[in-house]
Design a protein around this nucleic acid. Structure first.
Lengths: 249, 249
DNA sequence: GCTTACTGTGTATGGCATTCATAGTTTTAC
DNA sequence: GTAAAACTATGAATGCCATACACAGTAAGC
């Protein structure tokens, strides 16, 4: 009755609850070391280089041995996406807004440092121990703001989404537009230039004005990461207003 | 000199500029019909069923024939992600806030109706004709707000990101948490229940309080799509404040 | 009519995730 | 102390898939 529902094997292993077999030889591995090996490969050679074979040979077993720890490659990937998250920053003593700004930035940087995360999941509710640790800190930072638990979680969720999409944008911008490789187009302003030739001013009235006015070219001369802060402030302003509403009256 | 930079083949085809060969047999296909076929398959059987073979046989050619129109499968996928976008709603005569709310919702619904989009790209700068059409309308809706072109694009970009991540969340919530299939866990509240067993209150102080207080269980009894509106209002409040700042002084 | 520039086809290759039967290993039961 | 039971890692086999390549057919240009 009480055990009717239980977490599936992989998730249990993500939480460090590896089943310890009562008979037979001791398992030579655990999910953590497998995941760590996979992350190393992904960091070094990209996600495409992560195959059951490559991961297995890195930990010194045959490819099929991994299926003792993981039901499928997908399981391994989700475990990777969780395990890659480091310790979140400590909110102790910080104003919620300062902390959340820091939190989102750290989140984004984390993703940029392991850009392969972008290819795994768009965004799923956090389930693993590491991601939930980040969620915990965000909730903690919002203590005393008057928001209820659900609202806090919603705020964190929205911010996570922003970190993710901003990281994605920044990544594609940095690594060049994937569709434009070998076209001689190197950055946003070049793209704007070429785009201007194709854009029909009748079908795209507002956009073609903006493009011809150089809206894309401007993106080149960024002051640090103005774009990131732009969206972040948008969101935090929204949160601040919500908090004021909850507190004010 | 002027032609030094040019859009790569696929992108040109996405814009309807198919090269017309001067000799030899007429091409039997074009990118649009190939893409449409691929989208039909993805809608019906999921993205996994989209292979060069399946798409080719649906349009009545051999698998390898597709490489006359597309350099790689990835090209086909990005073409799909663009072509799937329908006509955007018309902003004429609407207040910017009303329109953008509508716009984001339509965007999210679009993704939910073709959830496979989530597996293709997290979020890349729009390059195809359909996505840019949406961008155009968002910019148009912000006319007269006092924002400059770059800011308008940034707003649209942030909102797109929100549509995407919210769709992703909603999708995983609807289709059940992928990692939890066959575990007897059916929804968020069930997950909260099971989670409570694993969560160490010392390591996750804020979160375990929230979970035990039923923060996840509450998510079940949604009024329509309260969560979606929550984040949306957060963002639009932020935009509104920005506009006020640009106008006010 | 002959060349030229194409198109679609068929075959072949190599990589990949995953299945399955098997041999080996440790613990429990008697 | 011995045998069965439970479990591990392995190696070979399967089937799918993206893609490269050489080729045969076709339509325009000369």
């Amino acid at each position: 009755m009480a055990q009717e529902r239980s977490l599936p094997p992989v998730v249990q292993r993500m939480w460090g609850r590896e089943p310890t077999p009562r008979r037979g030889p001791r398992p030579r591995l655990d999910l953590a070391t497998i995941t760590a090996a996979a992350i190393e490969i992904a960091d070094a050679e990209g996600l495409a280089a992560v195959s059951m074979g490559s991961v297995a040979s890195r930990v010194g077993v045959a490819a099929t041995a991994l299926y003792r720890y993981v039901d499928s490659k997908e399981d391994l990937l989700t475990a990777m996406a969780d395990a890659v998250a480091p310790e979140p920053p400590d909110p102790a003593g910080m104003h919620w807004r300062d902390y959340l700004a820091l939190w989102v930035r750290a989140h984004r940087d984390l993703i940029l440092q392991h850009a392969w995360v972008l290819s795994i999941t768009v965004y799923a509710p956090p389930m693993g121990p590491r991601r939930l640790l980040w969620l915990d800190r965000a909730i903690a930072a919002l203590a005393g703001t008057g928001l209820d638990d659900g609202e806090k979680i919603n705020v964190a969720s929205t911010l996570t989404g922003y970190a993710l999409t901003d990281a994605a944008l920044e990544h594609t911008a940095k690594s060049g537009f994937p569709e434009l490789d070998g076209s001689g187009i190197e950055g946003a302003s070049d793209y704007g230039e070429v785009l201007a030739e194709v854009l029909d001013p009748e079908a795209y009235p507002a956009l073609s004005v903006a493009v011809r006015a150089g809206a894309f070219s401007g993106a080149e001369g960024w002051v640090e990461d103005a774009d990131f802060r732009f969206g972040l402030d948008l969101l935090l302003d929204g949160v601040e207003q919500l908090i004021a509403r909850r507190q004010g009256r």
